[in-house]
Design a protein around this nucleic acid. Sequence first.
DNA 1: GCAATAATGGATAACCTTATCCACTATTTA
DNA 2: TAAATAGTGGATAAGGTTATCCATTATTGC
Lengths: 158, 158
Amino acid sequence: MLSQTVEYALRAVVYLAGRSSTACTNGQIADATKVPAAYLSKVMQALHRGELVQAQRGVNGGFRLMKDPEQLTILEVVNAVEPIQRIRTCPLGLAAHGKRLCPLHKRVDDALATMEKAFGDTTLAEVLAEPTSSVPLCEFPRESSKRNRRADVRAAKR
Amino acid sequence: MLSQTVEYALRAVVYLAGRSSTACTNGQIADATKVPAAYLSKVMQALHRGELVQAQRGVNGGFRLMKDPEQLTILEVVNAVEPIQRIRTCPLGLAAHGKRLCPLHKRVDDALATMEKAFGDTTLAEVLAEPTSSVPLCEFPRESSKRNRRADVRAAKR
DNA sequence: GCAATAATGGATAACCTTATCCACTATTTA
DNA sequence: TAAATAGTGGATAAGGTTATCCATTATTGC
């Protein structure tokens, strides 16, 4: 239903949103989200072109979200890599009845609209704030509090 | 978002639902719905395997709906050719947290569920009964009542 | 039974999505 | 300035979807 590319983009952005204080390399994101690294780099490029993430080359570079998770919806992520194609004109190409959709396509488009709305109504912050995330599902390690950050540093030195 | 195959299947079924009294050949359906005939035949096979349509070979053969339009939902058509893939387990393949979806995938799946419900709630009869169908949108000529048949003939003569 | 009709199934091609690899460029640190 | 790091862009391959063609089989009407 949703393409792999969209799935990958969402994983990456959720990951970045959870660690918004530091830049994350393509490799880090790929490992954490289990996305093939070579392919992820293409997806990240798309997110960069869509101005959702900032890209920084060189040592200590990587990707960083350009928006607050509170301001960023799932829909924006989807649209950056593969916009939801609403049905705007009759797919049969009949110009005869102008912009009106036939009942079938109206229904289908309504369903798409519902989906689009659901995505547009959900911010990354909401996804991260979900109560169940106390058990870090899907292994997206969250940006750590001060207490945990020290542990991260220790881990990084290994 | 929805595949071409699903789009084609829906067109074909709507067409059949509108002419449920006679068997329609693959060629007729293809012409009316503007679907490539050779490909449509594959789609019709899928609908046949899914027991949505009855197939009859030979002279005066063709396809016929196996259910009343009142009893047949859009979802059944979709599922016959390309079932909506709900997210049932973590796509990252982490068995660690059992059947629970992480917040991200829960949201995405919820959106899919909404879509599935919208499709499941819409019968073919509803699509055909839509008030706007008085202007026959998308050129699906409806099975005409005696009264409208005359109008159709007049229209055809123009 | 013969001829016409129409679905069926298999092979194949065109195209798009997903995935991989690699040479190149930009940036940082020392 | 050198070396290491990390994103960029191009080429290419693998796989899936969409599309086409054709020989075969089943059915009907004569």
